[in-house]
Design a protein around this nucleic acid. Structure first.
Length: 309
DNA sequence: GATGAGCGA
C-alpha cells in the first residue's frame, strides 16, 4: 500500500501543511484571549477581550452588553453549576458562562409534522373539512338501504347473490356497464347473474377473491382457516419467530402478531393459521404450555368473531 | 391478561 499524502488544502507562508480543520483552530491555538468582565451597574455588563488578531496585532475589544431582565424559571441544578470553580483551559476565568467560549443558543422547539412543514398548518384545516363532510354524509347500504356500509350488511350473503334484490343504484343499470362487460354481452356469466356488472373470470362461480396462485389468502377469509391464538408471547416476538416455531407442524398460511398501534410492539398474542386443521391441532397440542423466550406459551383455537363467549 | 387492520359511499 502506497503511503497516502496528507490532505493539504492550504499552504501558508509559514510552511507547516494544514488541512481545513486546522483553520478553525488557528485563533485558539495562539495566545488564548484574556477576558475581563465587570458590571457597570444600571444593568450594563462590560466585557473586555484582549486577543491577537489575524495579522498578529494585539487588540482590545470592549463590549457593553445590556442585561435584559427576563423572568424565567431557574433550573437550580444549572444555577449551581454556574458557581463551580473552573478547571482546564478555563481555570482562571470567572465563574459562569463566558461570552468568548459559550454561546447561548435559542431554544428551538421541534414541531412534528408529516412532510414539508409549510403544508402542515393548512393540512389541519383540510382534515377538519374532510371530517365535516364525512360527518354530514349518511351511509346507506346498497343492498338493504340500512344505515351501514354494504360490506357490513347482515344480508350481504343472501341479497348479494340474487340479481335485482338490491336497491336500484345507477351502477346496476345497463347504462353503466363497464367497457369490458359490453365487449362480451353474449357471455351469460357476464351479462346474466351479475346485474350487468363485469366480473373477471377468476372471480366468477362463487370465488371471492383473486386466484390461489396470486398469493395472499386467495379470497379465503381468515375465519375460514384453522387458526390458533397464541398468547403470553414476549413483546419482541415477530411474524418470523412464529413461522419458525409453528412451521414444523405444517404449512402456516397466515401469521398475525397483535401489536400496539402506536408503538408497534407485540401485545403478547398472535394468530397463526394453518392450511389444515390437523396440522393446527398438532401444533396446538405441542406448543401449548411450551416455554419460549423464558415465557410459557398458551395456544388455543381462535374463535371467529361472533362465536366468542 | 390477552381475539387482528382498514377500506368504503
Amino acid at each position: 500500500m502506497a503511503p497516502v499524502a496528507a490532505p493539504s488544502t492550504s499552504q501558508p507562508a509559514g510552511g507547516k501543511p494544514m488541512n481545513w480543520a486546522d483553520e478553525f483552530d488557528e485563533d485558539v491555538s495562539g495566545d488564548a484571549p484574556r477576558i475581563e468582565e465587570r458590571d457597570e451597574g444600571n444593568g450594563v455588563k462590560v466585557v473586555i477581550e484582549y486577543r491577537t488578531n489575524a495579522d498578529g496585532k494585539k487588540v482590545k475589544i470592549t463590549r457593553r452588553v445590556k442585561r435584559t431582565l427576563v423572568k424565567t424559571k431557574v433550573n437550580h441544578e444549572v444555577a449551581e453549576r454556574k458557581s463551580w470553580t473552573k478547571f482546564g483551559k478555563e481555570k482562571n476565568n470567572a465563574p459562569g458562562p463566558h461570552s468568548a467560549t459559550t454561546t447561548i443558543g435559542e431554544n428551538v422547539v421541534l414541531k412534528m409534522s408529516a412532510g414539508n412543514n409549510k403544508t402542515a398548518e393548512p393540512e389541519v384545516d383540510e382534515m377538519d373539512k374532510v371530517r365535516q363532510q364525512l360527518a354530514n354524509k349518511r351511509i346507506v347500504c346498497r343492498l338493504c338501504k340500512g344505515d351501514h356500509f354494504t360490506t357490513k350488511c347482515p344480508y350481504k350473503d343472501t341479497l348479494e347473490a340474487i340479481p335485482g334484490a338490491g336497491a336500484d343504484t345507477p351502477e346496476a343499470g345497463e347504462g353503466s356497464m363497464t367497457p369490458l362487460a359490453t365487449m362480451d354481452p353474449s357471455n351469460p356469466a357476464v351479462a346474466a347473474s351479475t346485474g350487468g356488472k363485469y366480473i373477471p373470470p377468476s372471480m366468477r362461480g362463487g370465488a371471492k377473491g383473486p386466484g390461489e396462485k396470486m398469493g395472499g389468502l386467495g379470497g379465503v377469509s381468515r375465519d375460514d382457516l384453522p387458526t390458533l391464538r397464541v398468547t403470553n408471547l414476549s413483546e419482541d416476538a415477530d411474524d418470523d419467530d412464529l413461522r419458525e416455531l409453528f412451521g414444523r407442524f405444517g404449512r402456516v398460511v397466515r401469521v398475525y402478531v397483535g401489536r400496539d398501534r402506536e408503538t408497534g410492539i407485540c401485545k403478547g398474542y398472535a394468530f397463526v393459521s394453518f392450511e389444515t386443521r390437523e396440522d393446527a391441532d398438532r401444533a396446538r397440542q405441542k406448543v401449548d404450555g411450551r416455554g419460549y423466550d423464558n415465557l410459557i406459551l398458551s395456544c388455543q383455537w381462535s374463535l371467529p368473531r361472533g362465536e366468542r363467549p
